[in-house]
Design a protein around this nucleic acid. Sequence first.
DNA 1: CATTTACCTACTATGTCAATAGGTAAATGA
DNA 2: TCATTTACCTATTGACATAGTAGGTAAATG
Lengths: 136, 136
Amino acid sequence: MMVSTKGRYALRVLIDLAEHDAGGFIPMKDVVQRQNVSQKYMERIMSLLSKNGFVEGVHGKGGGYRLNRSPEEYRIGDILRLTEGTLAPVSCLDCGAKPCERMDSCRTRPLWHDLDRMINGYLDQVTIADLMKKEN
Amino acid sequence: MMVSTKGRYALRVLIDLAEHDAGGFIPMKDVVQRQNVSQKYMERIMSLLSKNGFVEGVHGKGGGYRLNRSPEEYRIGDILRLTEGTLAPVSCLDCGAKPCERMDSCRTRPLWHDLDRMINGYLDQVTIADLMKKEN
DNA sequence: CATTTACCTACTATGTCAATAGGTAAATGA
DNA sequence: TCATTTACCTATTGACATAGTAGGTAAATG
């Protein structure tokens, strides 16, 4: 029942990019220093975020990453579903996983289903903008 | 973000004991056959449930396990917190874990905190009785 | 053209999960 | 009494995911 560092770092880097946004590109070197996390590991997460249209990256001097949209357009649910793969509390709810043959008679499935809806529903109502320090 | 088989099996065995309750003790052999899970593995889970007052077990012929209370007195949250260790979505919320030094400035902590409250709050309002097949 | 940055693939250490293996202890009923 | 049945106990294991590290290449700039 744990969100991995991958997902937590993804949120942190997006918040960091949002809070330090000055229109230009922000090098990961700076973010990594501020957030005190592994540069190499963060690079892999950025690659995922970049491929999926969350951020834009440019090479070379003056390069770095930049948000593709405004902070209130980043739903936490979307970010975590991407980095975690799924937010489902049990694998039988994970579309793409093999279906459970006990599904029809399963006493606990409604429980997991409702829990899943709650979790995703909550995380889809919070955005990066909500997590930013307001007095900026 | 997954509930382990340990927690899922615990719920299933308690539901099974509730649904087949006839006042006496039910041997794990029967439960394991109905639920189609590993006997040895289930035994370890029963030991945990027994030590923590969820079920009572007696040895020998005519022995087995029995619920200690009525089904509506078993909160799903209590069962899962026992078997999973914690339901916290991130370790910094897990009382007993080492506190995070970034706690005060952490932008994401309120998110995790509220999510944690939602998950626990929901699971504490559902009981084993709610998960039983009603027409018994 | 040297420097800076993103971007890529392969590898590894560690830990947890989901069991299995191989027993011992207690209670029963024949 | 004693074989059987059940719970209960400890140690070990295979598989897998996590959280990185190592060592590069490619692109952009000043």
